[in-house]
Design a protein around this nucleic acid. Structure first.
Ligand code: NAD
Ligand code: NAD
Lengths: 204, 204
DNA sequence: TTTTTATTGTGACATTATTAACAAAATATA
DNA sequence: TATATTTTGTTAATAATGTCACAATAAAAA
């Protein structure tokens, strides 16, 4: 199984490639990509090798379009991925307003909130009571959910999502959710990210 | 130098410890902490050992308060850390509204935006034109900044921050900022986080 | 008191990740 | 054409990280 850092770097490479492409370039060397992505050229080649991306040509580098196609295959970018959002508060609103997900073929198709005043059509995406999760998940074939509720409600929300066959969760609440191990959870704890930054900044 | 994962885990341990404490517990075993933090007990002990936290007692575990004190020392939680925010859009507003940072002794003391309509006192924190960064940084002894502007402006903002002696940056814009290596940068790319979650979910 | 049990802290081992080295191949140059 | 140069892909070497094993020892039980 490929590990988190590999995947992370591949995603960074993709962004760099898109940038290069927008700038009008057609080929890159591992050296260029490494510079832009802040890793060594050897690391770039090693990562490609691991994912069996071997379309580079000695002395002629890689065609950017080819690389992007390979990455799209790895990340299954052939069709949109529907995602639901639970908790239409500060973070929830920010995410639901974000236009950049479209480029990644990620579509937040609906949100859910327990606060009836949020259950309106006045946001960019419809906001339903949590009881409707089941219906929407089935209708839009949703496998992925975002938890953006206060930590007091996060485990309960998580349980409900899993009961509705959600397979992957991105969790913004600052607790470690309990879940069966076939459900993948990506915790994004922004306060801890800040702390970690502060730690490395002050101890460098 | 301690590595990112160590620090990350320590921060997770702290959250778990706070939770245990709130539940009325006074001691923990590495086993309990491991369960809660989703790591092995050996990993917990190894992490403690590495940071010279050796106040456990065989068969009697660790006093939660002692552990929290040690962690506070490592993370210098004796005083507030002032932070500035550049870009008062979706993400910027969410962060500036968040009450949870206080618990971590993180204070977002001011925000900056190029849009004059945002430069008001109507938000929780004052929003200034970017020209004022220098003044505020000096006044509040700021070392850390958050970049929450569109990617087109991110490098320019980054350069300005560094010119004003900012030492650490948390960057929400989806590009790799160029910076001298004595400036620590923590990139949080939410779209990539989503993609990484989707990858692992669909390939598990 | 003595024995048993549980738990820490760490050194040895295993695994994983990164870096370095280099042959093979493509291009450029003479 | 032949030679020099550049860049890939992969193997080998090194470094980092995580797991295992266990002595030391505190607490509990006998
Ligand atoms: N805002 C930030 O910048 C920030 C930073 C770090 C962490 N977080 C974490 O992200 C999460 C969301 O933060 P926020 O600032 O957006 O919170 P918020 O209070 O603004 O919004 C939470 C939303 O969730 C809804 N909600 C509460 N319980 C619910 C439930 N059981 N089911 C469905 N909806 C429910 C509320 O009605 C509200 O709309 C929190 O866990 C917070 O700790 C936020
Ligand atoms: N909103 C999200 O959920 C989300 C998700 C993923 C990534 N991001 C990234 O986070 C960043 C911010 O996103 P957002 O949705 O908050 O954007 P936004 O457009 O809502 O807000 C950006 C703010 O930055 C200000 N700004 C622009 N250029 C500036 C400059 N040079 N100096 C100072 N201020 C400037 C704008 O006036 C605006 O207020 C973007 O780079 C975006 O790609 C956001």
């Amino acid at each position: 199984m490929y590990l988190k850092n590999n995947i992370r770097r591949l995603l960074v490479y993709r962004q760099c490639l898109i940038k290069f492409k927008e700038l009008g370039f057609e080929i890159v060397y591992s050296y260029n990509l490494g510079c832009e992505a802040n890793v060594s050229p050897e690391q770039v080649r090693k990562d490609f090798s691991k994912f069996e991306i071997k379309e580079g040509r000695r002395k002629a580098g890689y065609k950017i379009d080819h690389l992007l196609e390979s990455l799209d295959t790895i990340f299954k970018k052939d069709k949109d991925q529907n995602v639901i959002l639970v908790g239409m508060g500060n973070i929830g609103k920010a995410l639901s307003n974000y236009k950049g997900f479209a480029q990644h073929k990620i579509v937040i198709c609906a949100a859910f909130d327990i606060d009836p005043s949020k259950q309106t059509k006045s946001y960019k995406i419809p906001v339903y009571p949590v009881e409707n999760i089941s219906m929407i998940v089935k209708r839009h074939n949703v496998k992925i959910a975002i938890i953006a509720v206060p930590k007091s409600g996060a485990q309960e929300v998580c349980d409900r999502l899993i009961a509705n066959d959600i397979q992957g969760i991105i969790n913004f609440s600052p607790i470690n959710l309990k879940s069966p191990k076939n459900v993948y959870i990506n915790n994004i704890d922004l306060a801890n990210e800040m702390e970690s930054l502060i730690y490395f900044t002050l101890n460098k």
